[in-house]
Structure formats: structure tokens, C-alpha cells
Design a protein around this nucleic acid. Structure first.
Lengths: 338, 338
DNA sequence: TTGTACGCGTTATCAC
DNA sequence: GTGATAACGCGTACAA
């Protein structure tokens, strides 16, 4: 591969001049400029990214940590992040943790190794203390997960409020005993949603049963399994607040299969307003988040910090969610389909 | 940030010795080794990735080009690729082309800039000639798209055979006029599937109508739109071979909505065996590809070339697909649900 | 307007 | 066993 040195020799000029042309800086005569350009073309010269990185101490690359890319919420997030990053000339490295604290730490190391300029965290597997340590190596933006003590930009919807509204909606549609399905106790999303869920129960004077909270609800399969678990062990449950549309879809699938009527016998709310929630029969009531806007904002915030420096201060960006009522909860079937 | 120089000074040794410890090479006495390790710990030293890259001329990073990450087929592919790459200590840069030839070329430039060691192409927007040029900068593996003249490893299922089988299945289930929905004429996947589709029509002595081929079928929305287009303009069509489960799902959703019976009045086959195909009512007959195996194989092939050198020779890796019959085609409703 | 010379942080080659 | 020293390819004070 041709180096800047080769180009300089070929053009009969110095490396400096070539460098000036590459980064189109002033103080190069038109004549030499085109001589350099010809030389570059002739040799098929392309600046070496590694050398540039070393020299500039910047990588123009960011890493996005997430549990798994197959989850629609996360891949929609990534789609918009990649597009926004690309606008700014940044690359995106995708880091699946599969819920492993170790993998999360491994990927955070990218920041210390200076392999990326910054990191977007969309899920958190380690104590915040641990993550905080990496902040001295570069900026971090929190997306979706809202850690109260985090001194960084935080982008999310009001999960507690969303869960509260979803639960109230279930109650208003006639549910009296409601199950709360979620992915895992150590997630901040869970903590906030649980707060809203319990607030709704409390306000409406519904009893809180320990049995009502079910974890490891992450995908269609777990949704299916949870239907049977609930039906067999807690037959009186007649409402379900699922952590995602996939879980809700799996749950409803098995309900229909078993001849249990949704929403008449059990009503279900999902989360994220993914395609599946509209396509299912019955269609699924769900909470919509402005995923695209959130993804773009995260990237903008991160790149801003990369390019203009960052300080350890909290900065909340709360986006608006919206409850989309559909057939899985609306017992009187007067419903305009979206 | 501490550099290797700092560590050396702190330990009272030379850079060389420190470097030896880092890359655990022999010829370092135990005593100095631990002195170095202590120094590294004390200073919180981490080797700088950019410097390593420049020195070693390797990045341990690969790029995966795809249309959009929100398409389930591609995000499942990426999931397995990322995991396999991670096993080998490689990072994955995600590159969405959104079907733009320009973006594709921009991302291929990563190879010339030496920002990645190799590239996996899962869709192709430029002439092969163009892409071929990048092969002198690093290895490329083709996934899903099978370009006959490509002198690189190629990983795919037999799309022609799959389309043939799907079409024959539609015919055997009673369809006599079949629409073929696809994403775009310039895709190699399309060319192969069309070949299989036409072969089936020909063998079964069905007429081929120009009107039967519909493009721009890429997602749920286009599936919905195509239902109306077909229903209004080609009411005699009673079978549909859709390019993906999302398209099939959108199509079926509108059919059910309009009171058109699936499969009695029109039968539908999807592609990829995504979750949605099982969840829909009726469930969707589809073609399953071993996505995970294919993704892993691609990464292995690419990394092998990165580490052991590559030559411009074709190498086919054909994976087995499988037709999964479900309710959207099976007119006699004797069907074991999966 | 152009060129010289140094340094970014590592690793490999050689001499000791 | 250990340590100078020279690359890797680039950008940029500084000098001219």
C-alpha cells in the first residue's frame, strides 16, 4: 500500500504538502495541489486509519452495548444510532452482552484501550460503581436504563409513568388481579416499571401479591412459557403487563391456543409498539416509545462530548411515551384499528 | 493515560521488557515480570489500541454490510456473527446501506483505509466489478447473496431450489395463479429465486404472467400495500410467494381484515421462519434457513483469511434450507402446529 | 508558500 | 535475560 511518503516522492514534494492537501488546509498553491492529487490517484493512495488514530488520539468510532440485537427494541435503536453516527462520520461497533456482566466489562474496556471514543449503554449488568470507573477513559451516555446516581447524559422515557398508565388501563378495562412480567430484577427499567405498577395497584386498592411478579420474560418463548405457568398456578390472574410486545405475543399465542379468551378472560399489555403488536389477533395494547428520536439523541450527545469535552454531570433527556390501546385489553370491541 | 514508557520508568526497566510482559513472551525473569505487573496495576496501564494497530498492521475488526438491521433475517445473522467474532477477539462494525450503492461504497472504503481487516457482504448494491476492486485491500466474504463470478468464499442456501419448492408446494395446495413478491430486481437473491419460481410454473404447466412479479416487497407495510394492489388489479391470483415473513404477515393481515380467507381463497408462503410466521393467525408456511450457522461460518471464513492470507478463489458453502408447512397454505386443516 | 523534524505508543531487531 | 533503537504512517510546530 502506498503511504504519504510515496505520494510525496511521486509528486516531487514533501510529506507536509501532501498532508495539507489531504486535509484540505490552506497555503498550498493550486499547481502543487493538483500535482499531489494526481500522484494520489496514480498510486491509489488512501490515508491509513491506524496512523491517523494514533496521531490524532481519536478513533471516530463509538460502541453501543446492548443485551441482544435480535430484540426489536434494540435493533430499532441501533438502526437510528448507526444512521446518525454515519452522518457525523463515525462508525458503530455493536456489543452484545447477552446479559453477562463479564461481557459488559470486556466491552467497556474498549474505552480504556482507546479503541472507541465513547460508549452508549442501553442496558446495565454491573454495579454503577464499576461503570463509573470507565468514565475517566471517555464519555458514556445512558440510554433506556435510568441510573439515578449516574453523572452522565441519560436518555429515556418515564418508565414508572408508562407502567402506571398501562396498569391503570388494565384495571379500567376490568382486570382485578394483574401479573407483572419483566426481564430481571437487576435492571433499572424493571425497578422503575415496578414502582409505577405498584403505585397503580395501590391507588386502585388492589391487593399486591408476591406471585404477581414474574421474571425472565425476555422473548416470545418466555411469554409462551409464562402463560402456562400463570394459568396453572395462578388461575385467578386476569390481567398481564408484559415487559415487551414479544413476551405479550407469546403469551397471547398460547392463550388463544388454549381457548382462553383475550381480553375477555385475561387482558394483556405489551411494550414498544413493535410490528407484531399490530399483527397479532387480537392486536396488542402497548406502550410506544420514540425509539428513533432517542437513538439519534444519544449519538448526538455522545459525539458532542467526544468533540467538545465532557464533565461528570447528570443531564436528563426524557422522551414522551404513548399508550396505544388495542384489542388485547379493550373488552367492549369498539376499537378503531390503527 | 499511562503509556508503556511510564510503566517502564515506574518499574525501573525498559520498554522492551514491559512489552514482553504484556504479550507474555519468554525471556523475562520472574522477578522483573512481577515488578512490571505491579507497575501496570499501579498506573492503571492499558495498551493503546491505535498504536498496536499501526505497529501490527491489523485491526481485529471486521465490518458487516447489510441493508437494514431491523430486518429480522439480518439481525439474527448479526447476532451470531458478533458472537463468533467476539470468540476470536474481533470487533464488529455494523454498516447499513439502506440499499444505497453510494453508502455501500463508502463502507467498502473501510477496507482500503485499513480500518477493518475484512468485510462480510450480505447484500450487494454495486456491480461486482466495483466490489472486486476492493479485494486487493483485504478479504471479503459473501453471505446470502450468491454472485456467480465472485472469486471469494460464498455462503448461502440454494435460493432457486427453495423458491422452487415453495412454489411447488403452493401449486400442490391448489394455487393456480401465483404472485412472486420480492425486494428488487438487482438483487442476486431475487434472480435465483425467480429462476426456481419460473421452473416450478413451467414444470407444472402454469402460465407465466408478467403481472405476477411484484417488487419493493421489503417489510410489513409493503406486504399490506401489495395485498390491496393484487386484490384490486389481479383478483384471480390465489397464491403468493413472499420474499420474507414480514411481507407475508403484512399481506395476510390485510387479507384477514378484508375478509379474504387464507389459505382457502389465497395461500401464502413466507421466507426465513421468523417468530412472526408462527404467531400469525393463520400461521405462515415459510422457508427456514440456518441463519446462525451461516453467520458463524462467514466469520470463521473471514477471520481465517485475515490471519492466514487469502487468494482470489471461489469457494461455495451451501447450507440446507427447509420448507416449514403451516396454516397459510395447508387447505385441509390437518396440521400439527409447531 | 514550502519543507524539516519530531512525536503519537507499540513491537521487533539487534547487540550486549 | 535485558535494553537501545528503529520502524509503523501520519500531522504539525517551527524554521525557512
Amino acid at each position: 500500500m502506498a503511504t504519504i511518503e510515496d505520494v510525496a516522492r511521486f509528486a516531487g514534494l514533501s510529506r507536509t504538502t501532501v498532508s495539507r492537501v489531504i486535509n484540505d488546509q490552506p497555503y498550498v498553491s493550486e499547481e502543487k495541489r493538483s500535482r499531489v492529487e494526481d500522484a494520489m490517484k496514480a498510486l491509489g493512495y488512501v490515508p491509513n486509519s491506524s496512523a491517523r488514530r494514533l496521531r490524532s488520539q481519536k478513533t471516530e468510532t463509538i460502541a453501543v452495548l446492548l443485551p441482544r440485537i435480535t430484540n426489536p427494541f434494540f435493533n430499532h435503536l441501533i438502526e437510528s444510532m448507526e444512521m446518525k453516527a454515519s452522518e457525523w462520520g463515525y462508525q458503530v461497533i455493536i456489543c452484545q452482552t447477552h446479559d453477562s456482566p463479564q461481557k459488559e466489562r470486556d466491552y467497556l474496556e474498549l474505552l480504556r484501550k482507546k479503541q472507541v471514543d465513547g460508549i452508549i449503554l442501553t442496558s446495565i449488568q454491573n454495579e454503577w460503581e464499576v461503570i463509573e470507573g470507565y468514565l475517566q477513559s471517555g464519555p458514556i451516555v445512558l440510554c433506556n436504563e435510568n441510573v439515578e446516581e449516574a453523572q452522565v447524559p441519560v436518555v429515556h422515557v418515564d418508565q414508572a409513568k408508562a407502567a402506571y398508565e398501562a396498569t391503570v388501563h388494565l384495571i379500567e378495562q376490568g382486570a382485578s388481579e394483574i401479573a407483572f412480567l419483566h426481564g430481571g430484577e437487576d435492571s433499572y427499567v424493571f425497578r422503575h416499571r415496578e414502582r409505577g405498577f405498584l403505585k397503580a395497584l395501590h391507588e386502585r386498592r388492589l391487593p399486591r401479591l408476591e406471585a404477581e411478579v414474574f421474571s425472565s420474560a425476555v422473548d416470545v418463548e418466555s411469554g409462551r412459557a409464562l402463560f402456562h405457568q400463570i394459568r396453572n398456578n395462578y388461575p385467578s390472574i386476569n390481567g398481564v403487563f408484559a415487559g415487551s410486545d414479544e413476551v405479550a405475543a407469546g403469551f397471547i399465542y398460547e392463550a388463544v391456543q388454549a381457548g382462553v379468551k383475550v381480553p375477555e378472560e385475561i387482558s394483556v399489555v405489551g411494550f414498544d409498539n413493535q410490528a407484531i403488536s399490530m399483527l397479532m389477533k387480537p392486536s396488542i395494547t402497548t406502550v410506544e416509545q420514540p425509539v428513533q428520536d432517542m437513538g439519534e439523541r444519544c449519538v448526538e450527545l455522545l459525539i458532542h462530548q467526544v468533540e467538545n469535552g465532557y464533565s461528570l454531570k447528570r443531564e436528563e433527556h426524557v422522551f414522551k411515551h404513548r399508550l396505544q390501546a388495542r384489542a388485547s385489553t379493550t373488552r367492549q370491541s369498539k376499537l378503531v384499528t390503527l
